[in-house]
């Protein structure tokens, strides 16, 4: 074989090839080795990075320095905010800078408001919700056509405080918008009539959101709001109690009801499907 190769290449050709190939391989190995050394010196790669306070231009000057690229900058901040949401600690108000900037660039971009209202504040974190409401102020003006923003704000305030004010204020604002669906009026009237069944109000709020959007994320977030409702705290307690007695989690909510671990509000199971994960006891409530 070697003789064959030797016959194929003349000695001169072989030398030329080797003089090219050998240094090439050497440098390639050196480069890969140095990269490996560099990787070993750095902290291990992980997706769990710390929330980074990226440079955000002040929203006051932003509209003036886009030079025709306003739309794409707003989208860039939106995508960036989604990526950073994963690492955000839920407390640093710096994160709301993204919403401020999106609002400054494209105040008609409704979705970031809705996402921030539903996803950003942890349950009962009213100060955070207040900050978001402050940023959303331009969208809460009479001239703004959006009914969803005041409605979602009202929904969250209702879930967090269980008080009429400020939920009523925002829900009323939602009723003044031209495209408001009938559900908004129904919910508002429920609150103003001081209906005792708070679950019904909560359910109706979530139903309005679910029926007026095709967006699965918003539906899930709204349902999460309902999940944080007191009524469903009962469900959590019931599952834990079941586990304490039987050393396993229930497979269905019917098991909890049959064995009297929970008493759910009338009508809940007509409107929602509750699925329990028997492995860890977590549950999901979905609107039918």
């Amino acid at each position: 074989m070697i003789a064959g190769i030797k016959n194929w290449y003349s000695k001169k050709d072989l030398r030329k090839v080797l003089f090219f190939v050998i240094p090439l391989c050497f440098f390639l190995i050196m480069v890969m080795g140095l990269q490996k050394v560099h990787d070993l010196l750095l902290p291990p790669f992980t997706t769990k990075t710390q929330f980074e306070r990226r440079i955000l231009l002040p929203p006051e000057i932003l509209p003036y320095v886009t030079f025709g690229f306003t739309n794409v900058l707003a989208d860039y901040y939106w995508v960036r905010s989604i990526q950073d949401f994963i690492t955000w600690d839920g407390k640093d108000l710096y994160y709301l800078g993204y919403l401020r900037n999106i609002s400054a660039l494209d105040s008609n971009f409704e979705y970031p408001y809705l996402f921030n209202i539903l996803a950003v504040p942890k349950p009962k974190d009213v100060p955070m919700l207040d900050s978001i409401a402050m940023i959303s102020k331009p969208q809460l003006q009479e001239s703004s056509p959006s009914w969803k923003i005041p409605f979602y704000l009202g929904t969250q305030y209702y879930f967090f405080t269980k008080k009429e004010e400020p939920a009523k204020r925002y829900l009323y604002l939602a009723t003044t918008k031209e495209d408001s669906p009938p559900g908004v009026f129904l919910v508002y009237s429920s609150i103003t009539e001081k209906v005792i069944n708070s679950y019904k109000v909560s359910r109706d709020l979530v139903r309005v959101i679910s029926n007026t959007t095709d967006n699965e994320t918003l539906k899930k977030l709204a349902e999460r709001g309902l999940a944080n409702d007191t009524t469903v705290q009962i469900l959590k307690k019931g599952i834990l109690a079941y586990h304490a007695k039987y050393k396993k989690f229930p497979k269905t909510v019917d098991e909890l009801i049959e064995k009297n671990f929970v008493t759910l509000p009338q009508g809940l199971l007509d409107d929602f499907t509750i699925t329990i994960n028997p492995k860890n006891g977590s549950f999901r409530i979905r609107a039918k």
Partner: peptide
């Protein structure tokens, strides 16, 4: 691909980024 990480805003991202690329 950018649209797929924009949380249900893929069409908006595609349209905005694309017309900006053309521009």
């Amino acid at each position: 691909f950018i649209g797929s990480i924009s949380l249900d805003q893929s069409t908006r991202i595609i349209v905005n980024f694309s017309i900006t690329a053309i521009y």
